[in-house]
């Protein structure tokens, strides 16, 4: 039994300690906003924050997440208010199918925490998520719009 702290709540999960965190979040805890896209940390659809840093949870064992602060897409809003990335996503109508967007939003949220006004080069280096619908143009525009708002 592992104790996981997710979005400020504690969950006891009965899994193999080597099981990827993604599947504990989805199947044991029941938070399905975090997605599976590849299982080999290539696509980023499963991105969550562990102690604030973006992590591809499909390739991160449950045992390594014990005692850490895990945040998923469901935990970004505070007091029912979306975070500024989510708001920008609405403003720019970013998602198409939307499946990869939880991971994309988690990755961008982590980037902006580190660099509130990222350059295109910063975005290119930090955001390596795969989106098959191809929302990248809107993703970039939305990120820059957040920088402008906080300017």
């Amino acid at each position: 039994m592992a104790k996981l702290s997710i979005n400020g709540k504690t969950f006891d999960v009965d899994v193999d300690p080597n099981q990827p965190l993604l599947w504990a979040i989805r199947e044991q805890v029941g938070l399905t906003g975090t997605k599976y896209g590849c299982g080999i940390a290539q696509c980023g659809a499963c991105t969550v924050h562990i102690d604030g840093a973006p992590v591809r949870s499909c390739s991160f064992p449950v045992s390594a997440a014990v005692g850490k602060k895990i945040t998923t897409i469901e935990g970004l809003a505070e007091g029912g208010k979306l975070n500024k990335v989510q708001e920008a996503w609405l403003r720019h109508d970013v998602p198409q199918c939307g499946y990869c967007q939880s991971g994309m939003i988690m990755a961008v949220t982590a980037l902006l925490k580190e660099k509130p006004k990222p350059t295109d080069a910063d975005i290119n280096a930090a955001i390596t998520n795969i989106c098959r619908c191809g929302t990248f143009q809107q993703v970039r525009e939305a990120i820059h719009s957040i920088s402008k708002q906080s300017a």
């Binding site: 029941g30 399905t32 906003g33 975090t34 997605k35 897409i73 979306l82 609405l90 109508d93 998602p95």
Partner: peptide, 27 residues
């Protein structure tokens, strides 16, 4: 005009087939 289906796609609430839960479901 903005899409009708965006709100649930930014907060993890959109239910895809892969997310479906039914009582007593097995995988």
């Amino acid at each position: 005009i903005k899409r009708l289906d965006t709100a649930d796609k930014v907060n993890g609430r959109q239910v895809y087939g892969f997310d479906l839960k039914l009582p007593g479901m097995v995988n």
